[in-house]
Each structure stands twice: as structure tokens, then as C-alpha cells.
Simulated assay, not measured.
Amino acid sequence: MNLQQLRYVVATAEHRTMTDAARSLYIAQPALSRAIRDLERELGMTLFARSGRGVVVTAQGRRVVKLAREALGAVHEIEGLSNHAGTTDAELRIAATPSLEPGLAGRLLPAYAADHPGVRVHIVRCDGRDGVVSAIRDQRADLGLTDLPVPTDLITHPLERQEIVLISPPGLELPNPVPMGKLNGMRLALPARGSLRRRELDAMFGKFAVTPVVVLETDERNGWLNAVRAGQASLLWYRGMAEQAGRAGLVVRSLEPAVRRIIAVVHARRRLPLIAQDFLATAEKGTAA
């Protein structure tokens, strides 16, 4: 038995399908299935029962998953203590989405670095909220910065509400703020159909009874901005992207009524390394101020 196998067990228990667990671990699904089978043979017990397209954790498996989480948490804490003791080698890993990274780098990191000059902060760039969640679960990041909601296996520390704005090419005759009704028939670049982001936006459209014209469906953020730059569509996204959009000559407008999302620092349900605890304290103090 090794730590990698324990990570596989925890990921499989959290995702409830071998396919999704393998994707979160960046390995092939057959390799994950073999590793789980090998561990079950080694332990002489069945950890997961197959159920349709997914798996169900057995009674014995639940005990193993609990102990695996505790073991991985202990290893992570030991690593954190080691990092905290050696200032030149200390590294804090923070997962963030591209739209929230500017706020992280511009506000939170300078305040943290002022009090912790010996800690190197590595930003793990993630493609959306799901990417941040996976980075935390896979222990590729100590903390994550994302919008809510996130799965209940993560702990959240809300920091602020960030506004969703309309980013458009120049020349569109629109008021500021833009009434929601104006989105009806508007040409928009949207996230891929079926994605969490798209479902949230579709729910907003349904709430206000508007039907935009979908010009582009993709989860590639550069694709969205390129479509707006080319004058093909407008884009709904966080005000955190406004600076980047403004540099590109695009126009940023608020919506009426205003739509905001809660931005939070998130982490796994385990004791954080001391350097991560310090960052969280800095972030919460900055919010209170």
C-alpha cells in the first residue's frame, strides 16, 4: 500500500465513478480500476461495489476512505510544517480561475507577502470552478479561490460578492446599466452547453425570460474575448475581467438588476499548513477592513 493508492481511493469515493475520478487524477480509467482492484486484493476486502455506471462505497470501504483521508491529511500537515520551518523553501499553492487571478495577484498576495516574505506563492491556474475543486481534492493546491457553490466536502470562507457585467465591442448603443430585457436577442459568447457555468447563466436567462442569440459555445476564455474583439458577440463575466477587457478597447457595463456571485477561499476538510492558515487570516482581515 502507498500514498498514491490512498489518493485513488479517496478520489473514487468522492467522484462515485471511475471515469470522473480518473479524470480528476489525470490518469487513464483502466489504470485507476487496476490500482483499486490491486489494493482490494492486498487488503482482502471489497472497497467499492459497482452500481450501474458508477460505484458505491461498501461498509468496509467507508472505514478505509476515512482512514485514507486522515493519513493524507497528516502527510499534508507534516509537509506544511516543514515548509513553514524552512522559509527559503516554503511554498503556498493557491488554485484560481483566470477571471479571479487578477484580484488574487493584485490585492491578496501583496498583503500576504508583506508579512511573509520567505514564502513563495505558486498560483495553480484552473479552467473554472471545477478545476479549482479538482486541484484541492488532488492536493495540487492548498487553497482555492473561486465562486460558490462548491461541493460540500470542501470548507468555504466567503470573501466578497463580485458583480457579473456585460462586456461588449465598441459601438453598441446600450444604456449603463443594461436592463436584463436587453439581453433578449443579443448575440452572446457563452460557456459550453451542459457545463456548470452555462447552466447558471441559462437559469438567469430563464428567470428574466430572455433568450439571447448564442454565437459561440466554448469553455476557452480566450475564445470569448476574441469573439468580442472581433465584434461578433458580447460576453457576461465577472468585473475582475474588466481591466483586461478595457485594455482591449471593449466596453464594460453593469446589469440591471445587478447580479453578483460570492467569491470564497476554499480548502479540503483537514488541518491546513500554517502558511495556508496565515494566508486565510490575511484574506479575511482584508475583507473585514
Results as ranks from 00 to 15, higher is better:
residue 208 F to P: 04
residue 210 V to K: 10
residue 232 Q to N: 11
residue 247 R to L: 04
residue 241 M to Q: 15
residue 223 G to N: 01
residue 215 V to E: 02
residue 209 A to W: 03
residue 215 V to S: 00
residue 236 L to A: 09
residue 245 A to I: 02
residue 240 G to Y: 13
residue 209 A to E: 08
residue 226 N to I: 01
residue 215 V to L: 00
residue 244 Q to D: 12
residue 211 T to L: 11
residue 211 T to M: 10
residue 226 N to R: 14
residue 239 R to C: 01
residue 241 M to H: 12
residue 228 V to G: 12
residue 219 D to S: 00
residue 210 V to A: 08
residue 210 V to W: 12
residue 207 K to R: 14
residue 241 M to W: 13
residue 223 G to E: 04
residue 215 V to H: 05
residue 238 Y to Q: 14
residue 209 A to Y: 04
residue 239 R to P: 02
residue 221 R to C: 00
residue 250 L to G: 14
residue 214 V to W: 03
residue 233 A to T: 02
residue 243 E to P: 01
residue 224 W to M: 14
residue 251 V to K: 14
residue 211 T to N: 10
residue 247 R to G: 01
residue 227 A to S: 14
residue 228 V to N: 11
residue 223 G to W: 04
residue 241 M to F: 12
residue 227 A to L: 08
residue 220 E to V: 10
residue 248 A to P: 07
residue 239 R to N: 08
residue 221 R to V: 09
residue 242 A to C: 11
residue 220 E to I: 10
residue 246 G to E: 10
residue 212 P to D: 05
residue 213 V to C: 06
residue 222 N to C: 02
residue 227 A to T: 03
residue 236 L to H: 10
residue 220 E to D: 15
residue 213 V to H: 11
residue 215 V to G: 00
residue 248 A to M: 12
residue 247 R to K: 10
residue 216 L to M: 04
residue 236 L to D: 08
residue 213 V to Y: 05
residue 242 A to W: 11
residue 215 V to P: 00
residue 227 A to V: 04
residue 218 T to G: 03
residue 207 K to G: 03
residue 221 R to K: 07
residue 233 A to M: 03
residue 226 N to L: 10
residue 236 L to N: 11
residue 246 G to A: 08
residue 248 A to R: 14
residue 217 E to K: 03
residue 247 R to F: 01
residue 218 T to P: 05
residue 233 A to H: 05
residue 247 R to S: 04
residue 226 N to F: 06
residue 208 F to K: 05
residue 226 N to K: 12
residue 221 R to S: 07
residue 230 A to D: 10
residue 241 M to P: 07
residue 229 R to A: 04
residue 232 Q to K: 15
residue 245 A to N: 05
residue 223 G to Q: 02
residue 243 E to V: 09
residue 232 Q to E: 15
residue 225 L to P: 01
residue 235 L to D: 06
residue 242 A to P: 14
residue 213 V to K: 11
residue 245 A to D: 07
residue 220 E to C: 08
residue 235 L to G: 04
